[in-house]
């Protein structure tokens, strides 16, 4: 049996099928860890990491370039920057309502009596998880794309 090492790489049907089957479960689990982090082990960092890993798994099966183009730069940049904005925003709104930075209790007029809990959920889900997931995706796509020195720089 001889193998031609120069023939183009084709995606494997077996890997694509397996990832198609497993990815929804891992994504659901990652979202569960994120959204249920207040009442069971987990939270934004853990759940965000799992959501980021799902994208790496897709890239493993379908190729880094198609996955990169499918996700798109806007989504990654938006999630990373948006996460910081949400985190700062919750903190600043608390200051605006007369409290200290991230003093969730001051958010009661906006979020109701459970303001502390909902404020924490907001920064865990909208802030930390979004930042972690998008930075993991971004780092992988950047590394996979390689270093292009561009025009003579």
């Amino acid at each position: 049996m001889s193998v031609d090492p120069d023939r183009p790489y084709t995606e494997s049907l077996i890997i694509m099928t397996a990832v198609r089957m497993v990815a929804p479960f891992v994504l659901t689990y990652g979202l569960f860890i994120t959204f249920h982090g207040a009442d069971s082990p987990g939270g934004g960092f853990q759940g965000g990491a799992l959501v980021g890993v799902v994208v790496l798994m897709l890239a493993f099966a379908f190729g880094a370039r198609p996955t990169r183009e499918w996700i798109g730069n806007d989504v990654i940049t938006g999630l990373a920057a948006g996460g910081v904005v949400v985190f700062v925003g919750v903190g600043l709104v608390a200051i605006g309502l007369g409290g200290a930075f991230l003093e969730y209790g001051r958010l009661e007029p906006l979020l109701g009596p459970d303001a502390v809990k909902w404020g924490m959920e907001a920064i865990e889900i909208g802030g930390v998880a979004a930042i972690v997931a998008s930075v993991i995706m971004g780092l992988f796509f950047l590394t996979a794309a390689g270093f292009d020195r561009g025009d003579g720089s």
Partner: peptide, 8 residues
């Protein structure tokens, strides 16, 4: 805080 996970 109203949450049960002390770590969070």
């Amino acid at each position: 805080t109203g949450v049960t996970n002390a770590v969070t």
